[in-house]
């Protein structure tokens, strides 16, 4: 395998390789700035007209799209159904808190397992097809969960959504974390976002991650090399499913509510456009896209009833003029 070209590609996308003599300074600086901004967000958000919950929502959307981007941007799998795993995580957590346990960590664990395992089990069906066919199948399978959530009234509350649960405080030995405080919940979410970032980053710099990028770039060649492409896409699908379920679980805790809209294909489309807006081939693209998307949607829905048209226009315009997203656009600028 022509390893160097593949590694060159990922090092411009994911992060520099460990053990290399030169550290990619601009990239390191960017990461430090991003983390500093995220850690201090509750302090500066009110100053720029935001509020803490908005920051938490950005983090949750960034987490799910970070996972999705591993499949979409790095492996080249066009999934349009990730809201299903997001929603399964949300319902798993909500139902656990409502009926089984009062423990938030346990509810999160169950939510992540429900959504992640669903993605893992359904992966083999979807990865048998490629390209737009793959996209259609992921949408349709995702929509199946949506209709189950709508129709299974007695369990899920149907179209009105699942209510009657609330996040509880977390206890570590003698110390209690008060999650009802929005700022504390922001940091709670940030902690999971950091885990998600770490996992995706580790995957991307591992041989597995290089294989993902290679599959995106030249699947035929890898098949000739004897690699079971379907299995690798399945792994990417499963990882992104687990990450999406974690984000969904946090989303249910944030709102103390979840509805079938959290697993609708419209939301899946939103996830994809977030990746595209920020830059599909970049590590931080999903975070940038989430900031744009969440802030714009929050602002638009407060000033106009026609916010859907504006969001739709963002889709159309970004596809026509910014296909490689904001970060991709700037990277292209700097390279030239």
């Amino acid at each position: 395998m022509n390893a160097t070209t593949i590694q060159d590609k990922t090092s411009t996308l994911g992060g520099s390789r460990a053990g290399m003599s030169s550290v990619d300074l601009p990239r390191l600086a960017a990461a430090l700035v991003i983390w500093a901004l995220l850690l201090s967000a509750p302090f500066w958000l009110p100053l720029v007209g935001g509020y803490t919950v908005l920051g938490t929502r950005v983090l949750i959307f960034a987490l799910v799209t970070l996972g999705l981007n591993l499949l979409l941007g790095f492996t080249g799998g066009l999934s349009f159904g990730h809201a299903a795993y997001f929603g399964l995580g949300a319902y798993g957590t909500g139902l656990m808190l409502k009926f089984v346990t009062a423990s938030t960590p346990l509810a999160i664990l169950v939510g992540v397992l429900v959504g992640g395992l669903a993605a893992t089990l359904l992966g083999p069906i979807t990865v048998r097809r490629k390209g737009i066919y793959f996209a259609m199948i992921t949408i349709a399978i995702g929509q199946m969960f949506y209709f189950i959530a709508v129709r299974w009234n007695s369990l899920t509350g149907g179209e009105d959504g699942l209510t009657g649960f609330a996040r509880t405080n977390v206890h570590f030995g003698g110390w209690t974390l008060d999650l009802h405080n929005p700022t504390n919940f922001y940091y709670f979410t940030l902690f999971f976002f950091a885990i998600g970032c770490f996992v995706v980053w580790m995957v991307l710099r591992s041989p597995l991650g290089h294989t993902f990028v290679a599959i995106r770039e030249n699947p035929k060649r890898l098949r000739f090399l004897g690699l079971p492409i379907g299995v690798y896409i399945w792994i990417a699908f499963a990882i992104s499913g687990f990450v999406a379920a974690l984000a969904g679980s946090l989303y249910a805790l944030l709102n103390n509510f979840t509805s079938p809209e959290d697993m609708n294909w419209i939301l899946s489309g939103d996830f994809v456009i977030i990746c595209v807006l920020g830059g599909m081939r970049t590590f931080w693209g999903p975070l940038v896209g989430s900031v744009i998307y969440v802030v714009v949607q929050d602002y638009l829905s407060s000033i106009t009833v026609n916010w859907m048209s504006f969001i739709g226009a963002i889709f159309v315009l970004s596809v026509l003029f910014f296909p490689w997203g904001l970060l991709g656009f700037f990277q292209g600028r700097f390279k030239k």
Binding site: N306, S309, G312, F315
Partner: peptide, 26 residues
């Protein structure tokens, strides 16, 4: 809208028509 996208990744036409659907419904 669609003609400029024929030579590009199918993802983009998907997203474009998705956005178009939102605009039309609205």
């Amino acid at each position: 809208l669609i003609r400029p996208l024929y030579s590009r990744d199918p993802l983009f036409s998907l997203l474009l028509t998705f956005g178009l659907a939102m605009i039309m419904e609205d």
